[in-house]
Design a protein around this nucleic acid. Sequence first.
DNA 1: ATCGTCATATGAA
DNA 2: TTCATATGACGAT
Length: 171
Amino acid sequence: MKAKRPSEVLASLPIETAAGTFIAHYSTSGLAALDFPRSSGRESAQTSLPKAAEVRHWHALTTKAVKAVLNGNTPAELPPLDVSRGTEFQQRIWEELLWIPCGETRSYGEIAKSVRKPKAVRAVGGACGSNPIPLLIPCHRVLAANNKIGGFGGGLDWKRKLLAAERITLL
DNA sequence: ATCGTCATATGAA
DNA sequence: TTCATATGACGAT
């Protein structure tokens, strides 16, 4: 409906972790998307580092942040997040997710209430589903009511894994 | 406890 | 506009 401005992607860089190789996509404004490891192993990431020192710095931050989350810790610092292609509503939801402390969870309904739209519970789910930057925007900490697992775009197994890393137990 | 159905907000085609 | 949702509440098994 609103802002749909596909910022140009400057670089797609790999992030090697014990869980696989993530791929971070950077635009002129910051980190624009983060992909889960692909089981087929085909990486479309470029191997050469971009010339812009800024991007290299962002990637360093992203790499540290991703590894921190995989270990169940809170990232010390995040790179700038380019959420310019999201709608205003989505950006508001994503920002809200950022405030969820490591180890805690919220329900879709709780998120909806915190943005003063208590009825927009399904819309919250939709916003989480279109979250371009999983892990750093902790959509995995959002569960359905009654501590039910809910869903996860990148695969439910990932959600369970991330929750387990933070020692979050499902009822 | 599980299942079906409806209400409601938002986004995509 | 119509259709699809990573929900939630409620009522009927």
